[in-house]
């Protein structure tokens, strides 16, 4: 490895980087060809079909019928759908900031020389490794207002816990909490890998210049983690906007529709109400929202300067 590193580019060679368009041309397409085939046939085509289906009335078990923009007119007047979008936004706000910050903090902690660091890393990732359907059952036990572990623990310190999943104010935070629990360690993995890629010398240099550890975090670590942060926030937001499993296992959208996120509504519409055309319309709405949120992130991260190592 080190021998190979010795043959790596000199500073002079790197200076010319980006000047010439190395690798332009057909062989780039060869590299993406296999994935392109898969994406086109198995991901993009189904997605396009779903978007097209939003113009149809289709009860799944009978033939689809073209209805133009009818479904969209219905959507405009559908209070339930907009309520669901609001719930989804609330869910995203509850879990994304928390799980991102926690994951980063955890990664920084576990990026140090600590006894048993691998052991800890493994423990933190277990929530994401375990079979999801089983965990839904377990969390329902934990949230039981009377005999559940959570309220039993709270009672020990003199707090009377809420009714969690039966309380319209607490059900959504409870579901979000499970997501944070499940994804913090998982996201930690990406930050860990990102942190490992930051040359130690940069930290050392900053320290020599008298930067405090807070300054080093904001001026060195965070900017250099930008590519990782971008990936984590974009994919986490895409995932959080489509939350379904935990809601299905824990609340069925209740109580009083306080956890009825959009993807749950979509599933109900498609497979319980057999109204696939309208479910496709709701999916188009969800797609549009996620698309805009992603676009905003592309803008945001694009503006921020990254350290160019060259």
């Amino acid at each position: 490895m080190i021998a190979r590193a010795a043959r790596l580019p000199t500073r002079a060679a790197r200076g010319r980087a980006g000047g010439k368009r190395w690798g332009s041309g057909w062989h780039a397409y060869l590299f993406i060809a296999p994935s392109l085939l898969g994406v086109l046939a198995f991901l993009l085509l189904p997605m396009v079909i779903v978007l097209v289906l939003s113009l149809f009335d289709w009860e799944l078990l009978s033939a689809p019928e073209f209805v133009g923009l009818d479904n969209y007119r219905r959507l405009a007047a559908d209070g339930e759908a907009w309520h669901s979008l609001g719930v989804t936004a609330g869910y995203v706000l509850l879990c994304i900031p928390l799980q991102t910050v926690l994951a980063l903090a955890l990664a920084m902690l576990l990026n140090q020389r600590i006894r048993g660091v691998r052991f800890y890393r493994s423990l933190f990732v277990i929530p994401w490794m375990a079979t999801p359907i089983v965990l839904g059952l377990i969390w329902n036990w934990i949230f039981d207002p009377r005999d559940g572990a959570l309220n039993t623990a709270l009672a020990l310190v003199g707090i009377t816990g809420p009714d969690w999943l039966s309380d319209a104010d607490w059900a959504l935070p409870a579901v979000a909490l499970v997501s944070v629990w499940q994804h913090t360690g998982y996201n930690m993995l990406f930050f860990l890998a990102g942190l490992q890629g930051i040359p130690k010398e940069l930290h050392d240099a900053a320290a020599t210049d008298g930067a405090t550890s807070a300054q080093r975090f904001w001026r060195v670590t965070l900017p250099l983690l930008n590519p990782t942060m971008f990936f984590v926030t974009v994919t986490n937001l895409i995932g959080a906007f489509q939350v379904f499993d935990t809601v299905y296992a824990m609340t069925d959208g209740g109580p009083s529709r306080s956890t009825e996120v959009l993807n749950f509504r979509i599933f109900q519409t498609a497979f319980k109400e057999f109204d696939f055309g309208y479910a496709a319309t709701l999916s188009a709405l969800l797609f549009a929202v996620i698309f805009l949120v992603t676009l905003a992130q592309v803008r945001f991260f694009g503006k921020r300067t990254t350290y160019d190592l060259s």
Partner: peptide, 21 residues
């Protein structure tokens, strides 16, 4: 970004066209 966009539609609904494919 087209690749990324395919993650933005719930798999429960794209599953039906995919199954038909």
């Amino acid at each position: 970004w087209l690749y990324v966009a395919t993650m933005m539609v719930p798999s429960a609904v794209t599953m039906i066209p995919l199954f038909l494919i």
